[in-house]
Design a protein around this nucleic acid. Structure first.
Lengths: 361, 361
DNA sequence: AGCTTCCGCGCAACCGATTGCACAAGTCAC
DNA sequence: GTGACTTGTGCAATCGGTTGCGCGGAAGCT
């Protein structure tokens, strides 16, 4: 069943078969009211018979609209980013847009190339979901009225007042962290340690928010353990540090880190949650299936992707000024942060059963 | 800092500023050896000054090559698919290709629309990583010499002999399942149950492979528990079925299901792995951090994505005939399938400590 | 019959870049 | 001083649709 489509079918072919001009064929295909019913039917029949598919490049060349959206993010293999991409793609597709998805992989050069690709292809809109490049850099190579930033770790943009872009979409990380801290304190935890990649600005934000929340609750400072980004696969170093002087609870930058830590702690004498509470961030699926079930902050990643598309569309249609939006996050309490009283009870039970060593308060 | 780029810069603008014709400017920009050094420098300077970015649509209209690749998959939120996408994007980008990624979300209509979008935009190559549509359907709306199938659940394509497409890339699921079964039998497990979505053909393949492997090892048949696709979030029904008449081990269609089952089993009196061994499939990150650590089959998803691009490229360049490739998978032994002897020992320990109920062999 | 309207359709320009071919200098040889 | 070549550039066609404008003919009106 070899098909011989040496040459793609073009509009001229359809017009010829239908016995009309290209202009008429073009109009007939898009249901221009000026075209008669007979002609329209003939053209559609011809198009169907030939398997005609219009050339988007030619069309957009004239129309100056490509119906393409570009999405730049760090890494598709990361569940959070993948979810943003999923929401983005879903929303875009349902509006009839095709999406270029490109990853920066934390490499500024790659990011620049991706952005250039978007601009070359004249994407109608661009969303930078995450990148290591300075947003100002991004704006210098992209039409400012095309881009929306998601989660920009950039004070100037966070203000949102006069963003040199279509808009900014953030998740309320600070509120999420604050809720977490409040939750921990309410449950009786006092000595809290924060673990995260010190070199990331989003990390700095969360740490700051945590510290502020503690202060507001009249609690002491937060201890910080810096973890190298490429060392995440092995959270055992962190686990080791923790055993030296165990805090009451550990706040992790994200779930991936928290789950790694949970795993690493299993080979120490610190039992979670009996000796140590652990909290994550992001609400990835694995956090719901871990043991103990992780207390974390649910970030509506899919909705973020979806919302970014909506903002873009609204902005394109209404030509509105930069919009700044914040998506709410939600604390999800799991089993990794039980009330401290219950925790103490369980620990003593454990000690009785195991009949081995005990530890200080 | 408002920029007034009312009109995008076009080649004519560059040519005008450089004092040459468009033809010369075009050649100068792509380092045509016929253009003099002086002129070239002038053109490049002008382009840089104006921030000129060539219009890909116009270029490809003429060149008949778009430098675009299309990837169709089920769902970006699924970690396995996301990894394929990640590898695909990475490989494509490094070859200077932009990628359309679109998801079918298990909806044939969406898939058709996605494919149409790829064709409209004249993607140089298309990879169907996964879809629910019949491959024959896919081929009917896509130039056959453009598409590569990944994991086609389609006997006719699996043969690979005269595939009406550029090629087929499969992962060796059958070998993976066989290795798993062998592993279980070696470790003393005999009564094995397979759990998976009965309506998926890839599921049927795996079940068949498992049954065949059991037979080859001189073992009895495999029990099958069908699980509805949309019920995965709640594996408790499966857990319940298992408690009624517990097998020695459970083979799950994939890790997601296995992890859900692990979680659901925690609220039953069946302890994994003491009473029941559990095996997954795919090797998603969460499987390494579960407790107990899941025995699973590592599928090189990222490599699959990467390889698909390479196949496409090779095929485009060399105009070769359909290629069929199979990627090897690897059994990863975790803690969910300990040797049965050790398992029995641990169980008795547990029974002694808990001093409660016991169960038959 | 003559004139206005309306309907259906085609001509040709246009979008922005690429490229075959030809033309204008400049160099060298005879 | 004229012809053969080399070098550097420009003209114009081309890719595949879209669209402003105008034209021919049928219908409606006086």
């Amino acid at each position: 069943m070899r098909r011989p489509p040496e040459r793609r079918v073009v509009l001229a072919d359809v017009a010829r078969l239908a016995g009309t001009s290209e202009a008429t064929a073009s109009r007939a295909l898009k249901h221009d009211p000026r075209i008669g019913e007979t002609t329209r039917a003939a053209v559609h029949a011809a198009a169907a018979k030939l398997g005609y598919v219009p050339n988007a490049a030619a069309r957009s060349l004239r129309a100056k609209r490509t119906h393409i959206l570009g999405l730049l993010l760090d890494d598709l293999a990361d569940p959070v980013h993948a979810k943003v991409a999923a929401g983005f793609e879903e929303a875009a597709a349902s509006q009839g847009y095709a999406v270029f998805i490109m990853t920066g992989l934390h490499d500024p050069a790659r990011e620049q190339r991706a952005l250039t690709a978007f601009v070359e292809h004249r994407a109608d809109g661009i969303v930078v979901a995450s990148c290591v490049s300075d947003p100002a850099d991004v704006l210098s190579r992209v039409p400012a009225d095309h881009v929306i930033f998601v989660q920009p770790d950039y004070p100037a943009l966070a203000g949102g007042a006069d963003v040199p872009a279509r808009g900014v979409l953030r998740t309320d990380d600070a509120a999420g962290v604050a809720a977490t801290v409040r939750h921990l304190v309410e449950r009786g935890y006092r000595r809290i340690t924060y673990v995260g990649p010190g070199s990331w600005s989003s990390n700095a934000w969360r740490l700051t928010a945590a510290t502020a929340a503690m202060k507001e609750l009249g609690q002491g400072p937060i201890n910080f353990i810096d973890v190298a980004v490429d060392a995440w696969r092995d959270a055992s170093a962190v686990a080791l540090t923790l055993t030296a002087d165990p805090p009451d609870a550990v706040l992790c930058y994200d779930d991936k880190l928290a789950l790694g830590l949970l795993d690493a702690l299993r080979s120490t004498n610190l039992v979670v949650p009996d000796d140590l509470a652990v909290v994550g961030f992001d609400g990835i699926p694995a956090a719901r299936q871990s043991w103990p079930r992780l207390t974390t902050v649910d970030v509506p990643s899919v909705d973020v992707g979806r919302r970014a598309v909506e903002m873009l569309m609204a902005s394109v249609r209404e030509g509105r000024n930069p919009i700044s939006e914040v998506m709410p996050v939600r604390l999800v309490v799991g089993d990794s942060t039980p009330p401290r009283a219950a925790r103490a009870a369980r620990r003593s039970t454990r000690e009785t059963v195991a009949a081995s060593k005990g530890s200080g308060s």
